[in-house]
């Protein structure tokens, strides 16, 4: 491994961290504005033109808030838990290609931190570790509401990991490789996987809602029942890290969905790159749209949906795909 490679990797890591932290913040601005327009009000308007500086103001507020560590919590774990959420969200970005390979000043840039052979599996695995943020945060807080939220988080996240894994098995069989770039190239030749595997797409989409904890599956930190769930005892930037992790997760899952099912960046031209960004923006918009439109469901209804509806459908999908591929 030469030093150029090391430096390039480090630069890529820093760029991804900076851009996506900023995007997580700007994502909250878009959420507030889009939700507001759907609800016939204006959203942030006063801080900066059209309220654009609201994100900066919120960031400053979170950084300067007093960092309260309640007595009775397990201090070290309490402090680590938000970092785990944010860190795993960004670790998943290591295997996602954000743009097609391009050359600038004669130097080829691969906008993917590590093109490992097991790309998809790695992304799913690291998102599975993201479970530990709410889990440890809730267990370490000496608060019954946080404990209930942790129990819900553990059961929901583990159940929906099964669905993400099973629903991805059918497209994997067709593509034959775990790498996200291979998925993209397969779709260039054979058409979007959205059309050849619609059921897998829908299952993965529903599981994405559950894994990111968005309405209608927003019950881990549901403030109508559990105050703020595992985040109840957190204040200031620690809570901000939970928040950043949630929004970064939303962005990365949108990238994964666009790459896996909707053609990714196509043939690698500028139009393809813009199309990828457009698809990601569309998926993110749908996350927000659903939050404006629908109420939440109860935890037991969520588990019923996972084990009695989605999992059988995923297994049937795999069996059918297997048969079709054999004959």
């Amino acid at each position: 491994m030469d030093t150029a490679f090391i430096i390039e990797t480090i630069v890529k890591i820093v760029v991804i961290l900076l851009i996506f932290s900023a995007l997580a913040g700007i994502g909250t601005y878009f959420e507030r504005k889009i939700l507001a327009f759907m609800q016939r009000r204006l959203g942030p308007m006063y801080v900066g033109p059209f309220g654009l500086l609201q994100v900066a103001a919120d960031g400053v507020k979170l950084f300067t808030k007093e960092d309260i560590i309640p007595t009775g919590v397990v201090a070290k774990i309490f402090k680590i838990a938000p970092v785990i959420t944010a860190a795993t969200a960004f670790m998943a970005a290591a295997a996602i290609p954000f743009l097609p390979t391009f050359t600038v000043f004669g130097y080829t840039v691969h906008p993917i931190v590590a093109d490992i052979n097991v790309g998809v599996l790695y992304v799913l695995g690291v998102m599975a570790i993201g479970l530990y943020g709410p889990l440890l945060g809730g267990l370490a807080s000496a608060n019954k509401f946080a404990l209930i939220s942790t129990a819900r988080a553990a059961s929901v996240f583990i159940s929906y990991e099964v669905i993400t894994g099973l629903s991805l098995l059918a497209p994997l069989m067709m593509v034959g490789s775990f790498s996200l770039i291979d998925f993209n190239n397969y779709q260039v030749d054979n058409g979007w996987l959205l059309f050849s595997q619609p059921l897998a797409f829908i299952l993965f989409w529903i599981a994405a809602f559950a894994e990111t904890g968005r309405t209608p599956f927003h019950l881990v930190a549901n403030d109508h029942e559990l105050i703020d769930g595992f985040g109840t005892e957190y204040s200031g930037m620690r809570w901000g890290l939970f928040f950043i992790g949630e929004y970064a997760n939303m962005f990365f899952i949108s990238f994964v969905m666009a790459l896996l099912f909707c053609g990714g960046f196509g043939d690698g031209s500028v139009a393809g790159a813009l199309a990828l960004l457009g698809k990601v923006a569309f998926f993110f918009f749908v996350f927000l749209w659903v939050r404006a439109a629908w109420p939440d469901i109860r935890p037991d209804q969520l588990m019923w949906l996972c084990w009695k509806v989605l999992m059988p459908l995923a297994v049937i999908n795999i069996v059918i795909t297997g048969f079709v591929m054999m004959f």
């Binding site: 490992i116 052979n117 097991v118 599996l121 790695y122 799913l124 695995g125 690291v126 599975a128 570790i129 479970l131 530990y132 583990i158 990991e161």
Partner: peptide, 13 residues
């Protein structure tokens, strides 16, 4: 790589 990722998924997850 495969075993590494499986280690993460199975053990930690």
């Amino acid at each position: 790589d495969f075993l590494g990722v499986v280690q993460i998924i199975v053990y930690t997850g």
